[in-house]
Design a protein around this nucleic acid. Sequence first.
DNA 1: TCTAGTCTTCTTGTATACCAGTCTTGCAGT
DNA 2: ACTGCAAGACTGGTATACAAGAAGACTAGA
Lengths: 224, 224
Amino acid sequence: MKLLERLPRENSGEYALRTIKENIISLELAPGSQISESVLATEMGLSRTPVREALLELSKVKIVDIRPQKKSTIPLIDEEMVEESRFMRSLLECAVAELDCALATPADLERLRENIRLQNLYLDDFYSTQLLTLDNEFHGMLFGIAKKSQVFALMQNISIHFDRVRSMALSSVKNLKIVQDHVNLVDAIERRDPASAKALMEEHLNRYKIDTAALRAEYPQFFR
Amino acid sequence: MKLLERLPRENSGEYALRTIKENIISLELAPGSQISESVLATEMGLSRTPVREALLELSKVKIVDIRPQKKSTIPLIDEEMVEESRFMRSLLECAVAELDCALATPADLERLRENIRLQNLYLDDFYSTQLLTLDNEFHGMLFGIAKKSQVFALMQNISIHFDRVRSMALSSVKNLKIVQDHVNLVDAIERRDPASAKALMEEHLNRYKIDTAALRAEYPQFFR
DNA sequence: TCTAGTCTTCTTGTATACCAGTCTTGCAGT
DNA sequence: ACTGCAAGACTGGTATACAAGAAGACTAGA
């Protein structure tokens, strides 16, 4: 369990959720491993209550498997779940990209480009978690511009299935392509070209589709 | 606060969530009204813990507004939120309707038609909550057939914004149309006609779009 | 040595106690 | 009568205590 810094004005429950989520995505809490409310609570220096709230939320999207009176576990990677998550993302993100072509202001576009500049700074493998954060922010901005922030928040709940596969798959050659995708996408939005924007987004998200087969071969113990 | 029967094998938290949700949709817990963990707990004969878990989950989709150390409230109806919810539903349901054309088995179709038969039995205004339940089951089945049950579960979280507007808008003349929509949709799926299925679903969901303006006029105190 | 049964221990579920703010209310002083 | 302050009655956040059930270890008996 890798501890994070506690953010200002963040309460214990939010801190626990953020920490546990990060550890699941980074595979620090490995697929198939057992967890316990009280152990996690001790490790984080909290009581069971906020930890329990976090685990309960994660269990709603089946990224934590709580079995009363038995051990709870981090489920193995379930390709059907990953596919559901990809399906949802793809649909929503494509639609949002189209909306953005009509709604993005010059200021919005500048914020997007600024984010991409930062992505370029963190292209090294070593910064893969920072890159992941920037990537999430980038996509979050796209939803915000389309006035669909709540949809984004909800989508992120299930995207964690996708995210932990992503974090296994990240490699610098891929990252290069991903950042370039972002550039092309912003260009399309600036051109007010919804068809291109949608197509680019679809292609962008499809980069992750291919990986699961190879990953399963490499890390069979993490898959169902 | 209208109490529900406790389901077998349902734990307190689930019971609290189900009860509170129902009361929000039925406007028993009216938009703008204040709530308190301990009062709700007493009313339901539970301790604060499971009630708190339920409220916390509802607050994630902004259908409950928790303000630490201040009173929590049921937010007024926020049309932007209703629109986000409608946007998400529309996209996902249309895509699922298309998938169903390829995936529905004869047994699936029969279960759908059986559900519609029940809908016809409850067409009276008096049974509007039963009808709402059947409607939800119907749409849930469509997601299940497309192997997207988890997406449905997630979508329902935000759909509560939509649902409580729906429950204000229900009238028997509308219900007739809705049930007919369902019939037409299943026919299209049986014909393996994805274009029609998608179009019918879109039309079906659009029936609710018009209502908000009229409802705001009728119940201004419930709107922001 | 193997098996059956019991007891300890660990799990999550639920209730309760306590804490730190905030809002209200009532009293005292002017 | 009005104003200001203080006490107390709430709020939700957190910690802890207790309950119920499952699993595993250990012991007793064959």
